[in-house]
Nucleic acid binder design. Structure first.
Length: 626
RNA sequence: GCCCUGGUAGCUUAGUGGUAUAGUGCCUGCUUGGUAAGCAGGAGAUCGCGGGUUCAAUCCCCGCCCAGGGCUCCA
């Protein structure tokens, strides 16, 4: 099994630090476990250095390296030296690591320390004569135990491989020329410039709480939940309304496209042979759940359940393309603590996940293009601006340039391209639609990938015309990307608009309260309730501010709630059977009849799903969630 | 996960080695009003959690938790 746990308490690397006037050594003889060395390493001397004697213990792994560097750095600061002498010294421990592990850790340590220090290392596995002179001041002799990571964590091979993979960055211009990223003129492409900077150089200069985090909490949509693991949120009624509308909307579009909706378990056995192999080809960290004595991992997408389902299916070439779809509530990824932010990066998130089987690459490409279009349509429907990134294995690009032409003819703007020398994951190509937020951070929403290895791994087969069983190709698609991330993009978009001087708001079809009725005083309440009833019958989410407050106050509260339409009901309106309506979008006021309003409103939200308001309609009896 | 910064009523926040402001929200009463905040009174805080130093800790020290930023990473 390729998975590994680095963990378990107890093991630690032992180090002894001595601030020395000098340390010198000379090899006397070789042991069986000696590393190969050059002659220059047979003796050595360093002056005014921090001598670091090290014993790598059983169970130590890479995770001790950073901690050791940290310790050495701290001590070197306090004794004010930039010279480090690493000296393997087995006698510090009774439970030594295997020699190959120890050598690797020592070398890694050396190569990382060398970035900030002058470093010498004596060779591993030799008897050596050495002389040392200890400075003798209070801080000059220190010993430390460096622990491995304490908690069990599974790091997939793909995650580790990703660190090593070489990629090149280009911009595909509108003439479908591949321009090296640094040579492209970004003048008219600010969003793409930000995406590229983010992806290539990772440079950003920001120092503020992300606007969407303030919004999500202040609007009583979503909040942090201290009682859970970080990155698992609590959703209030208004938030869940928006979430459900987005979910229903994307599910509808996928069902119309031809996805067959299924539901699969959220946890799978860690020892299942097919699954554990796949875990290692996916760049994510997992949650582990115990059931009795068995370990299960929480799914990070709908892949597992759908693969296992497809494995058992009997599929003819006539049935292709075959698309299984699930809205994963939830997908779990145990992201690093420091990566989690608001709605942008979570440990539990909702994602529509569709897997399409295609008999060959031509077919797969055709599907890819259709799903690319479907994603474009989604982004357009929720009104989010995005930048396109495509990632290829180099050889795939060389063989499929025409395919790229087609994508460009659809998107008609420059695209960021990442090209891999070799294939780090299970896919040869993917696209993403990236949203760039108010802090110039980019994150992926829609994505489709062409997978060339998993049908074989999971023994997913179809019967071809010739009656033989074959492995199809498979596309992974998340048409909208994570639903939470869609809301993040909507809120950040609202913030970006507000910076331009517009009032921040959500699209009307997603606004929890779409219309608020404000009776000027108590005498208008009965009439106002009738108006509310009419709107309710028309399936418009309306509520009424029947609290004993001044009108100005009620208006202010409605504005703070980003309500798209405010209706004020006073004696004049009642007398003339007319509604006074203020629109948030353009701050205009209109006097129209209720039927006119309903008609224009329905026109505006045509084709969009709707749900009732999940809160009391009278504000006077509505509790606040925070 | 590591590094940096922060955590004081529901929310926003002032402040201090001798347990603490204010605004807002909430409750009560008064008021009745036209497009972003009427008036008054009241309740509301183990100052994130645990330990240490001290006669005394919300404040100083250590550990932890949570959040934001950086590294890293992605739906």
């Amino acid at each position: 099994m390729l998975l590994y746990y680095n963990a378990f308490n107890g093991e630690s690397m032992q180090i002894l630090l001595i601030h020395s006037d000098y340390l010198e050594y000379e090899i006397t003889s070789k042991t069986k476990i000696a590393e190969e060395i050059e002659d220059s390493l047979k003796q050595g001397r360093m002056e005014d250095c921090l001598s670091v004697f090290i014993a790598v213990e059983e169970g130590d792994d890479d995770s001790v390296i950073e901690n050791t560097i940290h310790e050495i750095t701290e001590v070197s600061k306090s004794v004010k030296t930039k010279k480090i002498f690493l000296y393997p010294y087995a006698h510090l421990s009774k439970e030594l690591a295997p020699p190959n592990v120890a050598i690797k850790i020592l070398k890694d340590l050396e190569s990382k320390l060398i970035l900030n220090f002058e470093v010498k290392r004596s060779p591993f596995g030799y008897y050596k004569a050495f002389k040392i002179s200890c400075k003798g001041h209070p801080l000059s002799e220190l010993s430390r135990s460096i622990k491995s990571q304490e908690k069990g964590e599974i790091v997939s091979e793909a995650l580790k491989a990703e660190e090593k993979i070489k990629s090149s960055w280009y911009i595909l211009d509108t003439n479908v020329n591949l321009v090296p990223q640094e040579k492209f003129d970004f003048k008219d492409y600010d969003g793409l410039r930000k995406l590229t900077e983010y992806e290539v150089t990772h440079s950003r200069k920001v120092d503020m709480i992300p606007p969407h985090v303030e919004y999500m909490r202040n609007l009583e949509l979503v909040d942090y939940e201290k009682g859970s693991d970080p990155g698992n949120l609590r959703w209030y009624p208004k938030g869940i309304l928006i979430k459900r509308l987005l979910e229903n909307s994307v599910t509808d579009s996928i069902l119309h496209y031809g996805g067959m909706e299924v539901e699969t378990p959220i946890m799978y056995s860690i020892t299942h042979p097919m699954l554990s192999k796949y875990l290692n080809r996916f760049p994510a960290r997992q949650y582990i759940v115990k059931s009795g004595n068995d370990d299960y991992f929480l799914r990070f997408a709908a892949c597992f359940g759908q693969y296992l389902m497809k494995h058992d299916m009997i599929i003819s070439y006539k049935d292709l393309p075959l698309r299984l779809y699930e809205l994963t509530r939830y997908s779990f990824r145990r992201e690093q603590r420091g990566e989690l932010v608001g709605l942008r990066r979570l440990r539990a998130f909702t994602m529509p996940d569709m897997h399409t089987l295609a008999p060959n690459m031509e077919y797969a490409k055709r599907e890819f293009i259709e799903q690319f279009k479907l994603s474009m349509k989604w982004m357009q429907e929720i009104g989010i601006e995005y930048e396109v990134a495509i990632r290829f294995v180099k050889s795939f690009y060389e063989e499929n340039k025409d395919f790229v032409d087609t994508l460009m003819s659809l998107i008609k703007k420059p695209i960021l391209v990442e090209m891999w020398d070799e294939r780090p994951f299970y896919f040869v190509m993917k696209f993403e639609f990236n949203f760039v937020d108010s802090m110039n951070k980019a994150s992926a929403l829609s994505t489709v990938q062409i997978d060339i290895e998993n049908t074989e791994r999971f023994e997913i087969k179809y019967f071809d015309e010739d009656g033989k069983e074959k492995y199809p190709l498979m596309l992974h698609a998340s048409i909208s990307g994570a639903i939470e991330r869609n809301l993040y993009a909507l809120l950040e978009t609202a913030f970006l608009e507000s910076k331009k001087g517009k009032k921040p708001m959500l699209p009307t079809w997603l606004s929890p309260t779409q219309v608020r009725i404000l009776p000027v005083g108590e005498e208008q309440l009965d009439y106002s309730l009738k108006v509310l009833d009419e709107l309710d019958k028309a399936e418009i989410r309306a509520d009424i501010d029947d609290r004993d407050l001044r009108l100005g106050k009620k208006i202010r509260d409605a504005e703070k709630d980003w309500i798209p339409y405010i209706i004020v009901v006073g004696d004049d309106e009642i007398k003339n059977s007319i509604l006074n309506i203020r629109s948030r979008e353009d701050s205009s006021q209109k006097n129209i009849t209720i039927n006119e309003f309903i008609k224009s409103f329905k026109e505006l939200v045509k084709g969009k799903p709707t749900r009732p308001l999940p809160l009391p309609k009278r504000l006077s009896v509505r509790a606040s969630f925070r």
